[in-house]
Each structure stands twice: as structure tokens, then as C-alpha cells.
Computed example of a mutant assay.
Amino acid sequence: MMQCRYCLTEFRIDFKKCGRHRTAMFVTRWMDLGEGRSPLDPRWASHVRVDGRTSQVPVNFERGSICAAFEQQEYSRFEFDSLLTPQDWKRLLRKIPSERRPSLPEYHL
């Protein structure tokens, strides 16, 4: 679990073996955007760019707390591929290139 130093965002990168020579990478990101009641909400403001810059004020929050709020469980128990349906897996595997390697071009000197 990784955290942004300047906004209420955390993310996780997971890898899963898919076939003999393939590995899928999953990036999951959770963001606390605030309650949405005011554009001045500090949670919201930490994500918003003003004059092309985001806030440079470090924020402190407990690791995994944003994930836990979304997933209704501790971040260590989150299973990154739990939401994928069999159809999602088929689409994912269809997008992974063939295991056959393309032949390398020949160069003659």
C-alpha cells in the first residue's frame, strides 16, 4: 500500500501470473475527495490544481484507511482481482500478446 504525500490518495500494485510466460499488473487507487459540500473542503482541495499546481502541504493519514472505507475491510484483506468476472478475465487474456515471440530482423554487414 502506497500513499501520496500531498493528497488523500493511496494505491496498490499487484501482479498475477496469467499463463506460462505472462503476468498481469493491476493498479488499484482509492481517493478521499471529501463530502462534496464545499469546494473549500480541505480533502477536495488537496486534489485540485490551482494555477497548474497542487497543494504542497503534506497530509497525514493512516495507511490503508481510505481503502478500508471503500472496501469495508482491512486493506491487507483486499483481493485485487475479486471484482473481475469471468468475462473480464476473457477480455484481459485476449489483450495479452501471444506467447510466440516475433522473429528478430536479420542484419547483414
Results as ranks from 00 to 15, higher is better:
108 H>E: 08
90 K>P: 00
109 L>D: 12
8 L>I: 04
8 L>R: 10
80 F>I: 11
100 R>L: 01
38 S>T: 13
14 D>K: 02
56 Q>F: 14
62 E>F: 02
72 Q>D: 13
78 F>I: 04
84 L>D: 07
8 L>W: 15
70 F>L: 10
78 F>W: 03
16 K>H: 10
45 A>R: 14
16 K>S: 06
14 D>M: 03
35 E>L: 13
79 E>W: 11
95 K>Y: 05
94 R>Q: 09
28 T>C: 10
52 G>Y: 07
90 K>A: 08
35 E>F: 14
19 G>M: 02
104 L>A: 14
64 G>F: 01
96 I>R: 00
36 G>P: 11
34 G>M: 00
42 P>S: 10
54 T>D: 02
79 E>T: 07
42 P>D: 13
91 R>G: 08
105 P>F: 15
45 A>Y: 09
97 P>V: 02
59 V>E: 11
98 S>I: 01
90 K>M: 04
32 D>N: 15
40 L>M: 12
32 D>A: 08
25 M>Y: 08
15 F>E: 08
70 F>S: 09
20 R>K: 15
5 R>A: 08
30 W>Q: 03
68 A>I: 01
52 G>I: 05
83 L>H: 13
18 C>M: 08
20 R>T: 14
66 I>N: 04
107 Y>H: 03
99 E>G: 05
42 P>V: 06
43 R>Q: 12
31 M>P: 05
109 L>T: 04
11 F>V: 05
35 E>Y: 14
91 R>D: 07
85 T>H: 14
58 P>H: 04
32 D>F: 08
79 E>V: 10
78 F>P: 00
64 G>R: 03
77 R>F: 05
27 V>R: 15
21 H>E: 04
10 E>W: 02
71 E>C: 10
91 R>F: 07
56 Q>S: 14
54 T>A: 12
51 D>T: 05
77 R>E: 03
62 E>L: 06
39 P>V: 14
17 K>Q: 09
9 T>G: 02
4 C>Y: 03
108 H>R: 07
23 T>Y: 12
65 S>W: 08
86 P>L: 00
80 F>M: 12
102 P>F: 00
39 P>I: 15
31 M>A: 09
96 I>S: 01
25 M>R: 09
70 F>W: 15
43 R>V: 01
67 C>F: 13
51 D>I: 02
90 K>G: 01
28 T>P: 04
52 G>W: 06
27 V>M: 14
67 C>H: 07
